[in-house]
Amino acid sequence: MLHAVQPGDGGVARVVTDLVRAQLATGLRVAVACPPGTELAAAVRDEGADAYDWRAGREPGPGLFHETRDLARLIRAVRPALVHAHSAKAGLCARLALRGRIPTVYQPHAWSFEAVEGTTAALARRWERAAARWTARVVCVSEAERRTGEAAGVRAPWSVIHNGVDTARFTPAPGTVPFPAPAGEPAGPAGSHGPVVVCVGRLCRQKGQDVLLAAWPEVVARVPGARLVLVGDGPDAERLRAAAGDAVTFAGAVPDTAPWYRAADVVVLPSRWEGMALAPLEAMASGRPVVVGDVDGARESLPPGHEELCLVPPGDPAALAAALGRLLARPELRHSLGREAREHVLSRFDVRRTGAAVAELYRELAGVRCTEHREPIAQ
Rank of each mutant, 00 (worst) to 15 (best):
A242S: 09
A244R: 05
A263G: 10
A244H: 05
D256W: 06
T257G: 10
G234I: 02
A242C: 00
A247T: 12
A264V: 15
P259C: 06
G245E: 04
R239Y: 00
A243Q: 11
E238N: 00
G234R: 10
W260S: 12
R241P: 00
A243H: 02
A264Y: 14
V266D: 15
D233Y: 09
G232E: 05
F250D: 04
A253G: 06
A244V: 08
G245K: 03
D233H: 12
V231L: 12
D233V: 08
D265A: 14
D265Y: 14
E238A: 14
D246L: 04
E238V: 08
D233M: 08
P259N: 07
R262F: 14
T257N: 08
V254N: 07
T257C: 07
R239C: 00
P235F: 07
W260G: 11
T249A: 05
D265E: 15
Y261G: 06
G245R: 04
A253K: 00
A251V: 04
P255F: 01
T249M: 11
A244K: 06
T249S: 07
A258L: 13
W260E: 11
R239M: 03
R262I: 12
V266Y: 15
D265L: 15
V231Q: 04
D256V: 00
D233P: 02
A258S: 13
G245I: 08
A237D: 11
V254Q: 11
D246E: 15
V254C: 06
D236G: 06
A242E: 09
R239A: 15
F250E: 07
V248L: 06
T249D: 08
G252Y: 09
D265Q: 15
D256E: 08
V254A: 05
A251G: 05
G234W: 11
P235Q: 11
L240Y: 09
A244P: 06
V266R: 15
R239T: 07
V266K: 14
T257P: 13
P255V: 01
D233L: 08
A263M: 13
V231P: 13
D236W: 08
F250R: 02
Y261I: 12
A253Q: 12
A251C: 09
A243F: 00
L240F: 09
A244W: 02
A247V: 02
P235H: 05
R241A: 10
G245D: 04
A264S: 14
P235K: 03
R239F: 01
E238R: 12
R239Q: 07
A251L: 07
V254R: 05
A243G: 00
A263N: 11
G232C: 09
E238I: 02
P235G: 09
R239H: 01
V248G: 07
P255K: 01
A263H: 11
A237H: 11
D256C: 01
G252K: 12
R262T: 13
Y261C: 08
